[in-house]
Design a protein around this nucleic acid. Sequence first.
DNA 1: AATTTATGTCAAT
DNA 2: TTGACCTAAATTT
Length: 292
Amino acid sequence: MPEGHTLHRLATHFDKTFGGGAVRATSPQGRFSDGAARIDGRVLVESEAHGKHLFLGFDSGEWLRVHLGLYGAWTFGDVDGERHLGAPRAPGAERLELERDPDGFVVAPTPVGAVRARLINTGGWADLRGPSACEVITTDDKHAVQNRLGPDPLRSDADPDRAWRVISRSRTTIAALLMRQDVIAGVGNIYRAESLFRAGIDPLTPGRELGRERWEILWEDLSGLLRDGVRDGYIITTRPEDRPDPDAHPVPRPDTLYVCYRTGDPCRVCSSPIASSELAGRTLYWCPGCQP
DNA sequence: AATTTATGTCAAT
DNA sequence: TTGACCTAAATTT
């Protein structure tokens, strides 16, 4: 589930499980061998997310930048078993007996599949598969990446006015603008569709016709939805009263979402069939009845 | 066993 | 706008 909430969960998880200690880094697959050698043995001092980028800072002053792309995922293993953060993966084992080498570092299992990067410390391991980016960069490089990103509603330094300045001058549809990471960072196809539904906004509304008030509503709602996603580890946008059973926990799908993946299904609010179309290579979902 | 699909982005047209 | 990237699970043959 690599939209912004997942990356913030990852940053927190790395801070908790790897922060403050030395890390062993390898690339079982081999495509990240040079980068792994640069961070091998360093101490993880900072973990940070901006939009869909994860930045892990080491005591060498360098950063590991990871972007999961469409299907990247991290697998974490420790005494409590295996957990996956990123694209959907099968649940792992329950508890694990950990073997340790003479230095106290965990001996991780033989990699299954293509593991681009593997980080190990004395408590467990983390395997990265299928990322679109995994590289060691300088602080300047990191700032350059961040300068190209719009405000991330999950970051305390986020300034929604920066996004509004672009949106309010653009003829591009709000649906396309929400997907542009240089406008607003962290929103993906699900949060786009769901936030526009919740705000009752026609996805094809040009940015310049959105109006400041509707933008502020949209930003606030997105901030809340993303925060819920960080808390739940899952994107849940339906209000309890709009679910078949308001008391049941809606995970997993299909009761978690209003419009995404629901083409042809009746809208949870007005019963109109949910519509979908291709927009810039991605599927856009909306309710013609609720988003006029 | 082969094909399709996915919560993403970039370069080339 | 299209294809490429690159991985694993789900779906279809």
